[in-house]
Nucleic acid binder design. Sequence first.
DNA 1: CGCCGGATTGATCAGTTTCAAGGCATGTGG
DNA 2: CCACATGCCTTGAAACTGATCAATCCGGCG
Lengths: 182, 182
Amino acid sequence: MFGEDEPAEYVYEVLSGAVRTYKLLSDGRRQISAFHLPGDVFGLEAGLSHRLAAEAIVDTTVRLVKRSSLEKAAGTDVRVARKLWAITARELTHAEDHMLRLGRKSAMEKVAAFLLEMDRRLPATGLIGLPMCRRDIGDYLGLTLETVSRSLSQLQAKGILGLSGARQIALRNRQHLRNMDA
Amino acid sequence: MFGEDEPAEYVYEVLSGAVRTYKLLSDGRRQISAFHLPGDVFGLEAGLSHRLAAEAIVDTTVRLVKRSSLEKAAGTDVRVARKLWAITARELTHAEDHMLRLGRKSAMEKVAAFLLEMDRRLPATGLIGLPMCRRDIGDYLGLTLETVSRSLSQLQAKGILGLSGARQIALRNRQHLRNMDA
DNA sequence: CGCCGGATTGATCAGTTTCAAGGCATGTGG
DNA sequence: CCACATGCCTTGAAACTGATCAATCCGGCG
C-alpha cells in the first residue's frame, strides 16, 4: 500500500478487510504498530512522509483522500483541523497503551490484551474472526509466532477460549482475560 | 505534577530540568513513555484527561498554559491548531520508534539507542549528564536496572563510552553505537 | 566519619526464543 | 477424485537472554 519514508500523498480509510502498519529493522525484524480495521483511518501524517509501511493482510478495500485537500480544508475549517488532530491523538493513545504492553507485560498478558482488543474492535458475532496470521500477532506483541501459538493453546486448555480453526476464536471467559491483562 | 486519568487542565513546557511521563500497572510495573527535557512540551491532550502520569526527576521549572486558552486560540487561529497537531504528531513519531525498540531490540541495542537519543537531545557539552537513575532508564527501555547497569559496564569495558560517576557519560565511539542500534 | 540511596557485580533461575519435526487444511494437477 | 505440494499452525527439546536474588561498592552529605 505504501512503504516507510515514502511521500504521504494520501490518507486512507479502511472500508473492508484489514491493514497492518509496521517498521522494519535492516535484518528483517518487524514491529507492527497497529492493525487497521473497517472504519479506521491510517496513513495520516503531519509531516511529509509516512513513518510506517502499510500492507493489506486480507482482501481489503480502502478509500483514498488526497492529503493536500485535507490540508486545504483544515486551513479554512477549524472543525476539520480539530478532526485531524483527534485522529493523530487517538493513534498516540493506542501507541502509549501498546508501549506498556511491549515493555512490561509477559507473553500471556500480551496475548490476553490482544484478544480483548480484537474482541472490542471486531464485529460482535460471538466468534472472533482474526484477519491476521500468528506471525503478525507475534510481530505486533513483540513475541515469536511459536510463543503466541503456545499461549493460545494454554488458554484453550484452561477453557478460557475455544478455537475453531486457527483464526476463529470464541472467548469463554472475558473476565479471566481482563484479570491477566492486569 | 499530574497523575494518570486526571483532568487535563494545563499544558506544560519544560524550562529547566527533566520530567518523566509514564503508566503504571496495578502491581507496580512501570513503563516510562518519554523523558521531557528543556524546550519540550508535555501534557497536551486532545481529550479531557491525561493518559499518563508526569513527575519531575530532578529540580525542574515548567511553564503552564491553560488548556482552555489554547483551545480558544485554536478555534480562531489556524496556525495554533496546526501547532497543537504538530506537537501530538511528534509524540506519536517518538512512540512509534520506541515501540520498535521495546518489541524487537535486544538489551544492548536498547541501551545504545537510549544513549544516542540522549546525546542528540541533551546539550552538546561533550559529556552526557543524565538526569535519570538506572531504574528510570530500565523502565523506559523495558529492562531491569541491573541489565541497564551491566550493558553500560560492557560498553565501558569495550571503550565505547567512559563513565565519570554513574550519570556522566562520554561517548567515545558513536558510530559503533549506531551500528548496534541497527 | 559513618550513613544512605543508588549503582555495580555475581550466581542462579525462569521465560522466551530457537531449532526442529510433524499436523492440518487448502488448492492444484494428474 | 485422489495424491501431493504448500502454507500455516502446533508441539517438543534445548539454548539463551534477561530477570531475580543477594552481596558489596561508591559517592555525596549530615
